[in-house]
Write a protein that binds this DNA or RNA. Sequence first.
DNA 1: GACACTTGGTTGCGGGCGCAACTAAATTCG
DNA 2: CGAATTTAGTTGCGCCCGCAACCAAGTGTC
Lengths: 147, 147
Amino acid sequence: MRPYTVGRLMSLINRISQRELAEKLKPHDIGSGGQHSYLRAILATPGMNQDKLTNVVKFDKATTTRCIRQLEEAGYVTRTVDEQDRRSYRLFPTERAISFEPTLQAILDDYNRLLTARLTADEIETLQALLQKMYLGLDTSALNLDE
Amino acid sequence: MRPYTVGRLMSLINRISQRELAEKLKPHDIGSGGQHSYLRAILATPGMNQDKLTNVVKFDKATTTRCIRQLEEAGYVTRTVDEQDRRSYRLFPTERAISFEPTLQAILDDYNRLLTARLTADEIETLQALLQKMYLGLDTSALNLDE
DNA sequence: GACACTTGGTTGCGGGCGCAACTAAATTCG
DNA sequence: CGAATTTAGTTGCGCCCGCAACCAAGTGTC
């Protein structure tokens, strides 16, 4: 029973668990990838433009365009041209998004609980701290963790 | 500076780091996804069929078909019909694969080292143990960890 | 031995995502 | 001011991957 490397484990866990999360989000018309990250970010700080948002969620700006479009089509987000800078769009949650927020939070909490079901509270804390450290080592632009 | 959840961290770390691994593998004609997992598995236990392999690497069997085809085209793997069961193919590493193995191992080691660059040896061990626990909690069919 | 059932593998389809090239609005600088 | 540069966002392209439907070879069961 040879243990996997850290990289392999992360990849495995991620791939398998993300699918379960996707299934829980699908009934709410939210796609399987980072879409929920975008929605949460917009709920947390309404009025951002896509560029800011891209930095927050750490995807590509092309991905942002597509995810936002889907969230818009699903009725979660509205885009209004920023009159101060007519290139950019300010993003706001709709009524649907606002009333959906608790459910979304519950789903994500559930997901994290499922993920760490076998760990004690202490272990989760340790794990989180270690992952955070890893993450900081990886992304040199990760100095603002205020999503 | 609000800390991320475990799920979010894993997703972030994975996405960002996998891209770096992909870049290191690309010069060797190995695709960005799980292709290297397949190659390693075939090197470790030559002669498996695709079904077994699928279970080992934990992808979908369709993905297996495609990854193996690419590895075959890149000259790393040969497929021979199993005369005992003419539906299945037995997979073997080529000369190229065998002579590439140390390099592959070095790349993967590098990758893991980069990933955990900020952690002490003890911390890595802890992390690995915790991830392993998570993984076992997730995948009920993960009883044979003998990739 | 013919029929249903299972099993190994392939293909079609669709979603997710990053990179690079592009458009249009803003900014800089002579 | 007008030309060059930067910046917000979009689109085209290609890779990765899972699901479901499919095909062909093997395994029953009668």
